[in-house]
Design a protein around this nucleic acid. Structure first.
Length: 445
RNA sequence: GGCGCUAUCGUCUAACGGUUAGGACGGAGCCCUCUCAAGGCUUAAAUACGGGUUCGAUUCCCGUUAGCGCUACCA
């Protein structure tokens, strides 16, 4: 497996984007055996270009570069080449080049006899395109830098690449590549084109338009597990055809085949308010739930510490157990378990303390009686449960009515992890402190 | 405009011409339950359209439509 940076476009190539790519790849744990930068192999590219030129299969084009995007909806038919450039005598071409006039080197696509350029794609099957529909594409820019087409073909041949697996946006470019391989006298590798990942509106995902969505580090920073994220990605445009979805890396590798790859684009379902595809989040939650708790703790700790909190090994173990099936992303530990980490609770409405079908007086009694129970019960899950259920019976109220005021008092909200485990993780001192605060708060109603 | 690719629930996807068109996410409902989750059960939801071929088309062929890609001295 070779990691090659196709960075022949100096303008667009920034250290920042390279760093982000490496960070993402390293996080995913995808290894590679060799690593190259195209920008460091330009001598090779020029050599290949020159040999194609020597064979008369390319020519100099002295036309100034066309700016930007060009007009793609021209009613004047497709642009194929500039006749005066393509047909220029070698004497004039040599003379102008020697005089220092800048030129691009273009491939001389055969025009005398129209023929079909063919190749077999491992995903899309047999492909053919008439030379009459292929323009004289550039090999070398006027600054001497190779284009993507030349650079990648030259490198593929030189590095002995066996399989090119890339986005379907290159499917039609592949005809040009076949022409280059022919001209360079190398056998083309196996091609396999992958369907594109598109935005909900159907547009191809791009760094420009969709920014964070296409950056792998975004998912890392949000608390995705790399194995879950890989799993999700694999399910986009490919399926094992047996309804299996949660698959470990080895199973993915074992089951993979080009035949299982789709030929239509897959949409990544992100939204403004929810930037992550719900299925990706679900898969991540699935991985989190089935992890060994100790492993989850290990993954959670850095997230908690990065937020500026400290937590003991013992307390984290308890919190992990309570939150494991309640978080979808590692990041969620901060919102789902905020009350575990902050000494002071975020402000909440005292009315929350009032239980279902109860009133402030009931809440007050539950808190008072609960405080007594908590003060001397063994501070363990079972001890607390026994004590609090007892208290409810004594007060003649439902367990729910007993538990809710206490839950809100210690967590600052109604929806929280199971009460007894939560109290145990919080510890006696903090629990009592918060109950006192809540009782005080209740008086203000 | 030219060339190419594609078309099954909202989304990801099954169904080597014969299925009540399956699964998953998300949605809805019920159960479980100290709340929230998780889990269990149930449910709504799709073959773009029109022609062929065939005893029989989601499936094969043609056309239409739509989407996407390429058409750069970007990749």
């Amino acid at each position: 497996m070779i990691l090659r940076l196709d960075d022949t476009d100096v303008e667009r190539n920034t250290q920042e984007s390279v760093d982000s790519i490496f960070a993402g790849l390293r996080w995913l744990g995808l290894g590679w055996d060799e690593e190259y930068k195209q920008s460091e192999r330009i001598e090779l590219h020029r050599r290949i270009a020159s040999s194609i030129f020597q064979k008369g299969l390319a020519y100099r084009d002295f036309t100034p570069a066309r700016t930007g995007d060009g007009d793609k909806s021209g009613a004047d038919g497709p642009w194929l080449f500039y006749p005066e450039m393509r047909n220029m005598s070698s004497e004039e071409s040599d003379r102008r080049a020697a005089a220092g006039e800048p030129f691009a080197l273009r491939f001389r696509v055969p025009r005398d006899v129209v023929r079909e350029v063919c190749f077999h794609d491992a995903v899309y099957g047999d492909q053919a395109k008439s030379t009459a529909d292929i323009e004289d594409f550039a090999l070398l820019r006027s600054d001497g830098m190779p284009t993507y087409h030349l650079g990648s073909c030259a490198d593929d041949a030189d590095l002995g690449i066996t399989h090119i697996v890339r986005g379907q946006d290159h499917l039609s470019n592949t005809f040009k590549h076949v022409l280059i391989f022919e001209a360079a006298g190398s056998a083309p590798p196996t091609f396999a084109h992958l369907p594109l990942l598109v935005a909900p509106d159907g547009a191809k995902l791009s760094k420009r338009k969709h920014g964070p969505v296409v950056s792998v580090t975004t998912y890392r920073d949000a608390g995705f597990l790399p194995e879950a994220f890989i799993n999700f990605l694999c399910l986009l445009g490919w399926s094992p055809k047996n309804d299996r979805e949660v698959m470990a890396q080895q199973e993915l590798i074992d089951t993979f085949s080009f035949e299982g790859i789709h030929r239509s684009n897959a949409v990544v379902n992100f939204k403004e308010e929810d930037p992550f595809d719900p299925k990706a989040a679900w898969l991540n939650a699935e991985y989190i739930r089935t992890m060994a708790p100790a492993d989850l703790s290990t993954r959670l700790r850095p997230v908690i510490e990065a937020a500026g909190f400290e937590v003991s090994e013992d307390k984290l173990a308890k919190i992990t157990l309570l939150l494991q099936e309640r978080i979808k992303l590692l990041r969620d530990v901060l919102t789902a378990g905020d009350f575990f980490f902050q000494r002071e609770l975020a402000p909440y409405d005292a009315a929350e303390l009032i239980p279902q079908k109860g009133d402030a007086a009931m809440a007050s009694r539950a808190l008072a009686r609960g405080r007594v129970a908590l003060a001397d019960a063994p501070f363990t899950h079972d001890g607390l449960e026994a004590a609090l259920r007892n208290a409810a019976t004594e007060l003649g109220i439902k367990t729910g009515q007993m538990f809710q005021p206490i839950r809100v008092a210690v967590c600052g909200r109604k929806n929280a992890p199971p009460l007894f485990g939560t109290l145990e993780a919080l510890g006696r001192e903090l629990s009592l402190e918060r109950i006192d605060l809540a009782a005080e708060k209740l008086k203000s109603l």
